[in-house]
Simulated assay, not measured.
Amino acid sequence: MKKIDLRKKQIESLKEFADENQKKIEDKKLLDKFMSTNLWKNSQSIGITSSLPIEVDTSELIARLWDEGKDVYLARANNDPNHTQDFLEYTYMTKLKKSKFGVDEVANPDAKINNELDLIVVPGLAFALDSHARLGFGGGYYDRFLKKYPTKTIALANSRMVFEHAQWPVENFDVPIQTIITPTKIYK
């Protein structure tokens, strides 16, 4: 299946799932599994996105990271033709604004940037358990970023995002995710 077709299918499936109680249950399981790993415990600077309703909810995760004294950096897509992104310092005092993608980003253009992170929680629409391939939203922001700034990566994947094998073409510029957490298991 072409990436564009699977993206459309996944977005519809995830929109449906967003309204189900099962999603809330799985989001909680994913958060608990994440907090049980050494990945976050051994990381001080953590990059993350403010989630859309169709994604695994990251708001509680961000709050827990702050409670644990971690430095949290929120992804910001840059307005450039190369589809680059940066991670900006995010505290509970930070003002946010909606990006062109509808995602909350740090509003202060002069906020501290840190692209040399210990860990990045990478969003996506689909994850292949065998290859750790990821199907993103189609901009290539994370693949470009991870090529330039390689670091530890982790994804939180609910049951609608999990595929045994990639149902989409995996290309040489696609960066696999190192660790995928599902509601039932952690794949390394």
Rank of each mutant, 00 (worst) to 15 (best):
M1W: 11
M1G: 13
K3S: 07
I4T: 14
I4L: 12
D5T: 14
D5M: 13
L6N: 03
K8G: 06
Q10I: 07
Q10W: 09
I11K: 15
E12R: 15
L14C: 05
K15C: 13
D19G: 15
Q22A: 13
K24N: 04
I25P: 00
E26I: 02
K28H: 01
K29W: 01
L30F: 00
M35Y: 08
S36L: 07
N38M: 13
W40S: 05
N42E: 13
Q44V: 02
Q44I: 06
I46M: 05
G47W: 03
S50F: 13
S50G: 03
S51R: 12
L52S: 08
I54E: 03
V56C: 01
S59H: 14
E60T: 09
L65K: 03
D67P: 00
G69D: 01
K70C: 05
K70R: 09
L74Q: 03
A75R: 02
A75T: 12
A77M: 12
A77V: 11
N78Y: 04
N79P: 02
N79F: 10
D80Q: 10
P81M: 10
N82I: 10
N82W: 11
H83M: 11
T84D: 05
Q85H: 08
D86F: 03
D86M: 08
L88M: 08
T91W: 02
M93Q: 13
M93D: 09
M93I: 02
K95F: 09
L96A: 10
K98H: 05
K98N: 07
S99D: 01
S99H: 06
K100M: 04
K100R: 10
F101L: 12
V106W: 09
A107S: 15
A107I: 12
A107G: 08
N108L: 13
N108S: 14
P109Q: 15
D110G: 07
A111Q: 03
N115K: 12
L117F: 08
D118S: 11
P123I: 12
G124E: 00
G124R: 02
L125G: 01
A126D: 00
F127L: 08
D130Q: 13
D130M: 07
S131H: 07
A133T: 04
R134A: 02
R134H: 02
G136R: 06
G139C: 12
Y141L: 10
Y142R: 11
L146F: 06
L146M: 10
L146C: 06
L146S: 05
K148C: 07
P150N: 12
T151L: 11
K152D: 01
K152F: 09
K152C: 06
K152Q: 13
A155C: 08
A157L: 04
S159V: 07
R160H: 08
M161A: 06
V162C: 10
F163N: 12
E164C: 11
E164A: 15
A166L: 09
A166G: 06
Q167F: 02
W168Q: 03
V170A: 10
E171Q: 15
F173R: 11
V175A: 05
P176S: 12
I177Y: 01
Q178A: 14
Q178M: 13
T179I: 13
I181T: 01
I181M: 03
T182R: 05
K185D: 07
I186H: 09
I186W: 09
Y187W: 15
K188I: 14
